[in-house]
Design a protein around this nucleic acid. Structure first.
Lengths: 225, 225, 225, 225
DNA sequence: AATGAATGAGCTTTCATTCAT
DNA sequence: GATGAATGAAAGCTCATTCAT
């Protein structure tokens, strides 16, 4: 399993020895954030590996060399750790997608761009959180928050396709189903991809872009139905 | 939630009213099978809805109006209930796939056939068991059994694509990744499809076949069906 | 484990074929007793091997090729099976002891006789039931019944020793403690003796008789205190 | 039932009254050990009284006025509580035996010493754990650990007797059986001795030493075989 | 006489969470 | 900020016993 290195950086480089005996409030603050991040990182790692419900707070605490109740200094519940994983993952994904939307190009090239980009995200460290962790674990309100995130991604893809149909770079098709097909193929990557496996993430992106869009290109006389 | 109807059929068609007061040994036998089936059906239902680990034996028993230990008359453990769900699901899928393999046609048409067929299976009642239930819950040997089933499906699809490449009905492509893309899109159906929703399973099959294969067809003028 | 053969003998040798289709009431009766005995035999076997509480009625029934509730035709509870084991065991022991008491000889030779006899009993099949099965398993009344049996043996031995002291064949000693010592050494045989082991039961009896009555001290006049 | 006194000693001798309101870390540490000890003590008590399998963790917890899961702060399983009982008991016994081995004297006097010493141990509080608790309850590895302990005692006694035969203080005899006889008589003490009964442990030791080494036969030259 | 089905009570163990320190 | 201790709730599983058939 890949190791997380965040924790050891805590409290680095005090200019004078005595100074490190008491921490400044700023140090305290940043240390706190670092630790929160470390918890999230380890938790995400373990959640992905075993499924969130098979990871106990004790398991997480053990990996961090702290005790279970210490976690409650940074998170108010296991649910909060989990939802925070989702939030972070979503933030990354959304950031990537926005870049694409703002790029120029017709719908089809944007879609290809998206596919490659999304494949890269999913295959990155912790990238499949949004796709593989179970939101059923969460209480209703948080669960709906996650659903909103997922719907957000869906909506963006639909928009790209709609745009492509509009600018005639993409054939007329059932937008909803086509989106499901593309996102399904991409999300499923999280189920089989192993970072220590033989397959190159970039290759995945290209191949998927080819397989999933060539059939959509309006050019030539090609018709989908 | 959809209701299970199996149990109520018990004791059907007694020739004379009094005769139904005592059950024949054949009736007994079939009743037992019916009950086993009912347990599996309810369990599959709840497993799919909540995830198998969030369904306790008590939950299942309650739905069946029996007590927890009564379940042990039909299954020796929760694991056995779960693996049996997988087995049934696999049996259905394999049966469908074999029909396709034995059908004639070139690789491309077999692939299209497969996509539509598989879409139908996944959208059927309990059809997404193999795809959505967690095998991590299971002990090692059973888990590997499930893995074998999954690999089996994967292998069949790869063979179809390879055949298509061979007979030039399918463009040269990365077989492994293409299989993952197609199966990913199809498996993901289990994540969003609701039988009480607006989308027609047959429509899904057709649209997916179009979207996922037109891009694979070698000839520029080729038609998806 | 030694096998019990009792069951297969049931219903043997009907004089005419048709006759065996219905059993006479006498046959029924004896069959019933045979079966009861078979249950007891198997139960005793398993109780000794694993401890009575680790043997479930299912275990017993399985060995007999019947089902658990069938046992209730012969015994009203698990406790009854257990107490019946104790009773049978006690019956055997008492029968042996009585023979000795009625034999002539002074106290010392009766004691030696007893030791050898008791060693033979303990090492015989099921002979250590009284000594090794737990009466704590039993409800109060039955438990006290067992205690009575045990006290009965104790009393007999004390009587022999008292007789020996009276007829001067045995040295003056603490009768109670001496009895405990002798019975302890003998009862403990049940803890280590294995019928398939290398030690001959008769040898045990002789050696124990020697050691427990003649002592170990080499010098004849040696004094223990 | 005898009470356990360990717990009440907590917080002894605070120099100033207010100081006892907060516990020092050393106090904490010792409190933890005390509590572990208390659990073991109560558990041993109840195991001896009822047999370990008839004592549930709830029973133990109730006696300690805590809840069942609290026990898991001190022991990782019921098995661990049980094996720890065995270990403690063994430690006591071995300590006693070693003293004897290192003492001078011929084999016979060492044997007598041993008998008295062992009688004292068995009659002491929890002294019969090794003899009366069932190791069948334990998983294989722990069970073999217990067996090793028991074999250890056996081996020591055999060695003493062998030594006695060598130095001619003990008659030639079957060493194995003689050891079984002596240890049997002694171990059985655990079955009948009650600390609130009338019999003095020291008296037991002396009487057993006499009976088991000097014998019962009145005539000096009497021979058993 | 024997069975399949069912039950209630019980067991050990796990876990998120709280709280005094 | 961090800890050890404790808890309530729940889980899977076992078992002696009962009962209709």
């Amino acid at each position: 399993m890949r190791k997380v290195k965040v924790i050891q950086q805590v409290g680095a480089k005090p200019s004078r020895p005595e100074a490190s005996l008491w921490k400044s409030s700023k140090q305290r603050q940043s240390e706190r954030i670092d630790k929160r991040t470390a918890v999230l990182s380890i938790a995400a790692e373990m959640f992905l590996e075993r499924g969130s419900h098979r990871v106990s707070l004790n398991d997480i605490a053990d990996q961090l060399n702290i005790t279970k109740p210490a976690l409650y200094n940074y998170f108010s519940s296991k649910d909060e750790i989990l939802i925070e994983c989702f939030r972070q993952s979503n933030r990354v994904i959304v950031a990537q997608l926005e870049a694409i939307e703002n790029s120029g190009g017709d719908g089809l090239s944007q879609l290809r761009e998206f596919i490659q980009c999304y494949a890269r995200v999913i295959t990155a460290d912790h990238g499949s959180i949004m796709v593989r962790l179970e939101d059923r674990e969460l209480p209703d309100d948080l669960r709906q928050e996650v659903r909103r995130y997922k719907r957000g991604i869906d909506t963006r893809v639909r928009a790209i396709i709609a745009k492509g149909i509009g600018d005639k770079s993409i054939v007329v098709c059932d937008i909803k189903l086509t989106t499901f097909a593309i996102l399904g193929a991409l999300n499923w990557i999280g189920q089989w991809f192993r970072s220590d496996g033989p397959t190159d993430p970039n290759h995945i992106g290209k191949e998927f872009a080819a397989r999933l869009t060539t059939g959509l290109a309006a050019g030539a006389l090609r018709r989908a139905r």
